[in-house]
């Protein structure tokens, strides 16, 4: 590939539209020398920086709409602002970082990588997560980690109603108050390996918090194997 540029390449949603931005970013592969990108004027538009596969850094300057950085692989996407519904949904790897708040279903069904939300996340954060690590600096809304299968959800603030309803093997750490736990979600003992993992996640997210202040929640494993005694809970 050619020589690197002295200035970061910039893409402007107002000028070339979401498709123009995504086409430029998706055309890159592992060998690209253009590693640092800036996206301007996102104007709350949907699906910005979706489906990226190259190990690039993308900084989006402003608030984004739905599904930003969905399906991400390898890329490091930073949203300098708030994110709409489904930020980082189904991401596979890489990192998605929101400096503001995120709307509903952040990190939904995501398989891997790290999703960091410095502010609050709304309802259904980490719904059906399948291996992603999510660190939220603020609080999460109701039904978060619903049917969460694997990965970690770290909440530095409070959690809304029905946390971890019908949870499988995801691990939840909450520092503040939990409004209520969902079906089959229980508090579990915080062992040394959990404290170590939590410290690692907080450090990776760049969020300062003492792991000792968190509680751990996970599956009681009573619900996901059918048991006639639990029929009322289904």
């Amino acid at each position: 590939m050619g020589r690197g540029r002295l200035t970061m390449p910039e893409l402007d949603v107002r000028e070339i539209g979401v498709r123009g931005v995504n086409k430029a970013l998706m055309a890159l592969d592992d060998s690209t020398n253009d590693r640092n990108w800036v996206v301007r004027s996102p104007q709350g538009q949907h699906s910005i920086a979706c489906g990226l596969t190259a190990p690039i850094d993308v900084v989006i300057k402003g608030h984004v709409g739905f599904y930003c950085a969905g399906m991400n692989q390898q890329a490091n996407v930073t949203i300098e602002g708030h994110a709409g519904v489904g930020v980082g949904e189904n991401m596979m790897s890489g990192r998605v970082h929101v400096t503001g708040n995120a709307s509903e279903s952040a990190g939904a069904t995501a398989h891997g990588g790290l999703l960091v939300i410095e502010g609050d996340a709304s309802s259904r954060c980490g719904i059906s997560m399948k291996g992603v690590d999510i660190v939220v600096g603020g609080s999460v809304g109701h039904m978060s980690a619903f049917m969460a299968q694997s990965g970690h959800l770290v909440v530095c603030g409070d959690a809304g109603d029905a946390l971890g309803d019908s949870i499988y093997e995801a691990v939840l750490f909450v520092r503040g108050k939990v409004e209520s736990l969902g079906a089959d979600c229980i508090e579990k003992e915080m062992r040394p390996e959990h404290l170590a993992k939590l410290a690692e996640l907080l450090q990776a997210a760049g969020i300062e918090a003492a792991p000792s202040e968190f509680r751990r929640y996970g599956s009681a494993r009573k619900l996901y194997n059918f048991d006639i005694d639990n029929v009322g809970a289904y």
Partner: peptide, 22 residues
């Protein structure tokens, strides 16, 4: 319903923005 409808109001970038809770 979506932020993009608000994005072009004067001062939207620096407005206080939130999602109404249940």
């Amino acid at each position: 319903t979506e932020y993009r409808a608000i994005a072009n109001l004067p001062g939207a970038d620096s407005a206080r923005i939130w999602e109404p809770g249940p």
